[in-house]
Design a protein around this nucleic acid. Structure first.
Lengths: 201, 201
DNA sequence: GTCTATAACGAGATAGAC
DNA sequence: GTCTATCTCGTTATAGAC
């Protein structure tokens, strides 16, 4: 599916507003804020996008499309399924830790009451990546519930990094808990221990 | 800490607006929407709450306070730590599946850019429950990272039930994946398999 | 007094005219 | 790209009902 070629300013609007949509959410973010970040006036945005909703959908599409190839590449190597999965976990954790735009937008949509974008996200944007995780899990251990493990993996990655904001106020939290390497290692451990447990039954 | 005694209408406003705040989010929900649900006019709300922000904070407090005793009771039995943790997982999953107000508000706050309420939630509202999980995990397996396991458990519960909206559009999803009993069982399995794996090292 | 509704304000929103 | 119409927001002032 080809995405329409965009002008340079349209690209600029997309990139800058993606960050703002992720940070403040659809309703709290005004077109003026976006225009401000782009060094233009709000009505000028209408030269590039039909309305706020259209801009937002374009943001969803491009943000997820940017991450997707990187993540999919993990599964296109000659390595064993186990190694492929591990490298995916590492790359996904790194991506989410570097900027949370991806995961913030995803979580916001998951919370949204009007489920308009849920289907779009699932089928058009995340399908390939989730399918790849799904397939590699089946290869590693056919007996496992690969759908549930896929959602658990995605959930842990998305949630644990969001939790970094709250950890300072929680008991038992240590500095290491906010480190990418440590979180990655722990999530990897949970997933592979679960697989191992199923394997031996 | 005593909470101020509230009138019947104030309680009604709290209950009805909690649902709406969870569903639409702080910014998207107008005082007129709330008033509508309560069968009153917007300005009348000001007889019961100073402003929107105050109402919202009261909502956070009461919603979490309602769930808290139920969940804490799991840890106040004479049962073994393992049984206590299992009964907590069951009760928490059931609570989240019955109404997602609790977990929606929590996730929304976790996403919020202004972290004003994060500390409040962590220290005033969720601290007791998280501490109880933390303690029981230490009892079961002192070698485990109980902080990380606590957040993983909370994250899995909150996330997996939110995912039910998206599952219909994902490959590999079956009807059982949206059932409370099945999700509960799977989360329990992940947590206890992780504990078992740590125990044997 | 206690709670309610009506009217209206100023700020800030989207979006269409120019 | 700018101007501006129109709408909706949170909030206040005020006056009437129980």
């Amino acid at each position: 599916m080809m995405t329409a070629k965009r002008s340079a300013t349209a690209e600029k609007i997309l990139q800058l507003s993606a960050e703002l949509f992720a940070k403040k959410g659809y309703d709290a973010l005004s077109l003026r804020d976006i225009a401000n970040a782009c060094e233009m006036k709000a009505p000028s945005l209408y030269n590039h996008f039909k309305d706020k909703e259209t801009l937002y959908r374009a943001v969803l599409q491009t943000v997820f499309a940017q991450e997707s190839p990187q993540l999919l590449s993990c599964f296109q190597t000659g390595e064993s399924p186990e190694v492929q999965l591990k490298s995916f976990i590492h790359k996904a954790c790194l991506a989410v830790s570097k900027d949370s735009i991806f995961s913030s937008l995803f979580l916001r949509e998951l919370l949204s009451s009007e489920g308009q974008h849920i289907q779009f996200l699932a089928e058009e944007v995340m399908a390939e990546t989730c399918q790849a995780i799904h397939d590699v899990l089946v290869k590693i251990e056919p007996k496992c519930d690969s759908h549930f493990m896929t959602t658990s993996l995605v959930g842990l990655i998305v949630f644990q990094f969001q939790m970094n904001k709250m950890r300072p106020f929680m008991s038992g939290s240590e500095p290491k808990h906010t480190e990418v390497a440590y979180i990655t290692e722990q999530i990897e451990s949970m997933i592979f221990n679960q697989i191992a447990a199923i394997k031996t039954t």
